[in-house]
Amino acid sequence: MSETILSVKNLNVQFITKRGIIKAVQDVSYSLEKGEAVGIVGESGCGKSVSVLSLLRLLPENLARIKSDEIRFCDTDLLHIANKDMQNIRGSKISIIFQDPMASLNPVLTIGRQLREPLIIHRMAKAKEANNKALELLRMVQIPDPEERMNNYPYEMSGGMRQRVMIAMSLICNPELLIADEPTTALDVTVQAQIIDLVKELRRRLGMSLIWISHDLGIIAGLVNRVLVMYAGTIVEEALVDDLFYTPRHPYTRALLASIPQAEGQLKRKLQPIRGSPPDLLNLPRGCLFAERCNYVKDVCRKEKPPIRRINDNHRCACWMDTTTSEVL
């Protein structure tokens, strides 16, 4: 029986700005089992990044307001622990890698120095040992000539190499959970394939759990066990990966799948775009946030927020309609 290592209940994140309150994440709940890989899919502004950054308190303190019933990681209450305890968890128990490898490394420190940093901060190794561990990680992420690379600076390396270094940095303390926030978006497609393959391989070797955030449904299809689909700050559908792609229930998921070019071996199918644009997070509509763009919309959708329906043990959907029968539930 797998154990739950991460449990998030009713997470709300708001940003206080001059123009008003931005409701970036509303009532998001999910959990993660040990060794599991979960994908969070959605478009820009849907709150996928914010929802994981808030777990680690990496959002600007003075702007972000985080409220939740529970954020629990293993036995630790992430919501209420002191800042210094949070700093202990970051990088050692939970690691996160970001989107833009060109900007994510300190330009005036060598790769070796930055790689040893997590070990030094978390007092897991002394100088020489840290150096050896760093070399080991560089080999693990398949960087050629690791001894030389240790003395390079970030600007001397390409985007793909830098992202491998970031992965090495995130894994050097052997975390239980790795969060990847669109790490391949800025990379070429062949480099992206290499990185994804690397992450799969590392998961096999090290066994850590994974949360992978992306807007690319193709990446998600081949990488994770379970998928959360987010829209305008809420989770609209959650399912095992096969169920999501082959029997999607939520109108947004269905529309999203219909709007992207599909795989090979099919006659050319006309792309079905989703009309309209996502809602303004400063001024969210009453009722369902997708109503304006939905192909199945009914009156009730505009008046009240849809409940979360359980379709089976692993499949949830926040919708008034049963999209398979087009009836209101």
């Binding site: 990496l58 210094k84 970001f98």
Partner: peptide, 12 residues
């Protein structure tokens, strides 16, 4: 962004 990275690895 590298400041976020620094915080993300647990730097005080």
């Amino acid at each position: 962004k590298y400041i976020v990275t620094a915080r993300a690895i647990g730097t005080k």
